[in-house]
Amino acid sequence: MYLKDGPHPSVFNEQVKVVVPHGGNATLPCKLNRDSQSSFAGGEMRVKWTKFSKDSSKENDVLLSVGFHKTISGTFSRRAYLLEADEDDASLIINNVTLDDYGKYKCEVIDGLDDSKVVVSLELEGVVFPYSPRLGRYNLNFHDAVQACLEQDAVVASHEQLFNAWKAGFNWCNAGWLSDGSVQYPITAPREPCGGKNVAAGVRSYGLRDKDRAQYDVFCFTSHFRGRFYFLIQPYKLTYREAVEACKNDGAEIAKVGQIYAAWKLLGYDRCDAGWLADGSVRYPISNPRRNCSPTEAAVRFVGFPDKKLKLFGVYCFQVFE
């Protein structure tokens, strides 16, 4: 909470973090605090909402309000507006929250030469997962990593998202890109091949790396989806091409890696059948560990990137809800 003393409007918020599901609506609080001596007369004050970039190096405009005139910027057009529950309410509403909406927002009230501001974090309920392409480990520069996550219905995870996943038990030895251009990896069980067994558990960082030349894996973040994820029952095993067609014939599309992780983590989806996914990988989600089906841990099990001509697997499909 930030407050300014004196006879000018100041702002405060009742919560510094808002957590919503993907596709939901978020209310980012921002309230004016005025006294009877305030110089504000109603027409000169400006309310400005901005969003910090992934690395916090700059701010991007979201909404500017001056009296009755309001300007909404970029991807927030038609999705963002002020709540204005009363004359002191400058809270921001964001409808149909996307994965890219995650981050820190600043509400700034400007009255002449005076201004006051608060910062609110918007977080999404979701899951962080590691990703490497068919080429294998450490083959993505930062720009390739961004594209790889997008293709799997996800975005590159932030440090905060990876840190929260680590606190929840995420343990992964391969280093991956994060949204600020750093490369990190989460270790809950220190061991020799992963930085040493005598080093404390934690999120280990290589720091910022060259986005064009350095190559690593990537940590992606995905959230709830509007659709149905399912294993398509078939009388026989499928090649990759047959798997794509089978989903299409069922009124769906072959599922993406982000969708299998979201179904597993957020919906508790559990199935022991290995199935093709859109990137050509074969995986299966286990929420209830058991013999022959990930006996030691709940996880999305990775079979690999087999020859697409092999008729050895089923398929996971995804049907979008209109």
Rank of each mutant, 00 (worst) to 15 (best):
K58L: 09
Q15V: 15
A255P: 03
D250H: 00
V320Y: 11
N141V: 07
R191A: 05
T296G: 11
N174C: 01
P21K: 08
F76E: 02
C272F: 14
C107T: 03
A41W: 14
D250R: 11
V282H: 00
R301S: 10
G227P: 07
S56D: 13
G207Y: 04
S223F: 09
R301G: 09
G67R: 08
S56T: 04
I72F: 11
S39R: 13
A168K: 07
C194R: 05
Y2L: 15
R241Y: 15
Q152M: 07
I94P: 05
G202W: 09
C173F: 02
S294Q: 06
Q319F: 02
G202S: 08
D180K: 00
V257Y: 15
K197D: 10
K4A: 14
R79C: 05
E123V: 01
C149L: 06
T71E: 14
V109I: 09
P9W: 10
L135H: 14
K117Y: 11
L32T: 03
A299E: 15
F40V: 12
L310A: 11
E123L: 07
R271E: 12
L83Q: 04
A214L: 03
T98C: 13
D273N: 15
V18F: 15
R213H: 08
I254M: 01
V47T: 05
E151H: 05
C149S: 08
K58W: 02
Y216E: 08
L277A: 08
G67A: 00
D114H: 10
C220V: 07
V257W: 08
N198V: 14
L83W: 05
V203P: 06
L178F: 09
D114R: 05
A263R: 00
F302V: 01
G304R: 00
Y240D: 10
S73Q: 11
E87S: 06
S77N: 05
L310M: 13
A41G: 15
P7F: 03
F76Y: 10
D100N: 11
W177E: 00
V109R: 01
Y240N: 04
H143N: 06
K308T: 14
H224V: 13
L28N: 03
L83K: 04
D89H: 03
E44F: 14
S39W: 10
F163D: 11
D86H: 01
V218C: 04
R228D: 12
S57G: 04
S38G: 07
S53Y: 01
R283G: 04
F219A: 03
P190A: 15
W166V: 03
R290Q: 06
C220Q: 07
